[in-house]
């Protein structure tokens, strides 16, 4: 505090900064609340999607078991091994209240009929359904991944905002206010000193 120049100029500057900080504080608080609300929404969605994924996993496993039984283990396993297509996706960005979150643009992993790796005549629809179920499962997993990243980013952002709000509320603003108080105190004191000094000079001048 000692390094602060107790000048009027400084005080005016400080006053302005305090005002700004208070406003920023309010804004950040609003942002925090907004983010939390957004988070809640997305969390709900995530719950649903994850639930859906688990369900899809179960059904995919069911389909697979039945396909293996009906169309032979070799056929099904080899189809699994021959599935070279990796899920392709591009990441874009979305702005939620200044938070940049990833949006995964998924390419559907569903294959074209002509890209099948197994003969149609010698197999049954069970194998189709197993393949389809697994493709859907991959989709669902990607969706969950997307939501999870979004949630992670949001949590980080909320944390950051919360820290900032707290810093402003409990540290920056009180500090600045104290400094301003100190400066104005010093300035008043300096004023008083000046008055005393002026009075003394006046008295001296009257003597002479």
């Amino acid at each position: 505090m000692a390094e602060v120049q107790p000048t009027r100029m400084e005080l005016i500057k400080l006053r302005r900064r305090i005002k700004m900080a208070t406003r920023g504080h309010a804004l950040l608080k609003m942002k925090r609340d907004g983010l939390i609300m957004e988070f809640r929404d997305i969390l709900e969605e995530a719950k649903e999607v994850i639930g859906g994924m688990v369900e899809k996993y179960e059904s995919a496993r069911e389909r697979l078991a039945i396909a293996m039984a009906a169309d032979g283990v070799i056929a099904v396993k080899s189809i699994a091994l021959s599935c070279h297509t990796e899920p392709s996706f591009t990441i874009k960005k979305k702005n939620i209240m200044g938070v940049v979150v990833p949006v995964i643009k998924r390419e559907k992993v569903r294959k074209r009929v002509s890209e099948r790796d197994y003969g149609v005549i010698g197999t049954t629809a069970r194998i189709d359904e197993a393949v389809a179920a697994y493709e859907e499962l991959v989709d669902a997993i990607l969706e969950v991944a997307e939501l999870e990243t979004t949630l992670k980013r949001l949590i980080e952002e909320i944390e950051k905002t919360k820290r900032r709000v707290n810093a402003l509320e409990y540290r920056v603003i009180p500090d600045m206010e104290a400094t301003a108080k100190y400066i104005s105190f010093r300035l008043e004191e300096m004023d008083r000193e000046n008055i005393v000094r002026l009075k003394k000079i006046k008295a001296k001048m009257a003597k002479t």
């Binding site: 070799i74 056929a75 080899s78 021959s82």
Partner: peptide, 24 residues
């Protein structure tokens, strides 16, 4: 015959253990 042939070729192509192919 054709069923077996298909399975054997698949097995060979994807390197399945012989026992597993035999079971089908």
């Amino acid at each position: 015959d054709f069923w077996n042939l298909k399975n054997i070729i698949r097995g060979k192509m994807f390197g399945f253990p012989r026992e597993e192919v035999e079971a089908t």
